[in-house]
């Protein structure tokens, strides 16, 4: 195990023991069982903030992993054809179980160099405009379904991005997705925060992994606004009700993909396959529907969201 989360500290000696036993060619069944039991204990009582930590785990399967495993003949497209290319958005055309689809996702990068290049998944104005361009391309030219993978800490806050009109750019993908006359499935695979995540989540069906979250603000950012204290993020996280189960109950998310105990990073293949199956299921039903009907349904669905007294 490369990286243990803070609440998994009790596993450290067990993993050490496991490694030592492996070195000495001893049987490891016993200790592996112990680890599983400990994991079960931890993962059965997770707090919201702990779920957020799992969602941000560096080993968690990311957009690139999903694309490599689920899509054949994927070819990446670059640039917004206006001002530049944002590497934090990966977009292109691929083949999903025989049908051509447009794939859009936020990329965090696997190596340190990639992570810096991709801004840790924070989206720049070029990125937002690239999403809008690919959505339009899929809707008008390829007439192919759109699948988005969401794993982003939000829109990038910096000098350059403000200069290039970050605030204007965020609305472009939202509008493009509303207008698209093709089925859209959004998959939240890790963290989904604020406008960055919203820009890719306008979809007919939203699929969410069990230990991922989708929130209006990061718990840290929210704590610094509401409490003026970053350390209160754990308290705020449970108030925000951003876990997959909460959002499923609220009717925002349509399907939850189960993750094994220990999180997706402990069994990547299984989770990626389950996600692929979930996407396939949703697309199959969506492809049967009329294109125009899809669009009006999508608009109606978002119009209904909101709780108020009247």
């Amino acid at each position: 195990m490369k990286y243990l989360l803070p609440f998994e500290k009790s596993l450290k000696p067990l993993y050490k023991e496991l490694e030592e036993k492996k070195k000495n060619w001893e049987t490891t069944n016993n200790i592996e069982e112990k680890i599983q039991q400990e994991l079960k204990k931890i993962y059965n009582n997770l707090t919201a903030y702990q779920i957020a930590q799992i969602a941000r785990h560096p080993d968690r399967p990311n957009t690139t992993d999903y694309i490599n495993a689920l899509f054949e003949d994927f070819i990446e497209l670059h640039g917004d054809k206006k001002s530049g290319d944002d590497p934090s958005i990966i977009a292109g055309m691929g083949s999903f179980k025989g049908t051509t689809v447009a794939v859009i996702g936020s990329r965090k990068g696997n190596t340190l160099k990639d992570m810096i290049l991709c801004n840790h998944g924070m989206i720049k104005p070029e990125g937002f405009r690239k999403i809008a361009r690919i959505v339009n391309l899929a809707s008008t030219t390829f007439k192919s379904p759109i699948i988005t993978f969401i794993d982003t800490p939000g829109a990038f806050v910096s000098k350059e991005s403000e200069k290039k009109g970050q605030i204007e750019a965020v609305s472009e993908p939202i509008l493009a997705l509303f207008k698209a006359k093709v089925p859209i499935a959004a998959v939240i695979i890790g963290e989904g925060i604020s406008l960055g995540a919203l820009s890719m989540s306008i979809a007919d069906k939203i699929i969410m992994l069990k230990y991922s979250f989708f929130s209006v603000i990061s718990p840290e950012g929210g704590a610094s606004i509401l409490y003026n204290d970053r350390k209160k993020s754990e308290e705020l996280a449970s108030s925000l009700k951003f876990t997959a189960a909460n959002l499923f109950n609220a009717g925002i998310v349509d399907k939850i993909v189960n993750e094994p105990i220990g999180g997706a990073h402990r069994n990547k293949e299984k989770v990626i396959k389950a996600t692929g199956d979930a996407i396939n299921n949703e697309l199959e039903t969506l492809l049967k529907e009329n294109e125009k009907q899809l669009k009006t349904n999508r608009i109606e669905k978002y119009k209904k969201i909101g709780i108020y007294a009247d």
């Binding site: 939202i174 406008l195 919203l198 969201i305």
Partner: peptide
Amino acid sequence: GIYSLMQVAKTIQ
């Protein structure tokens, strides 16, 4: 929470 984020999409549309 998430409801307020969705209002952005709703209003923009």
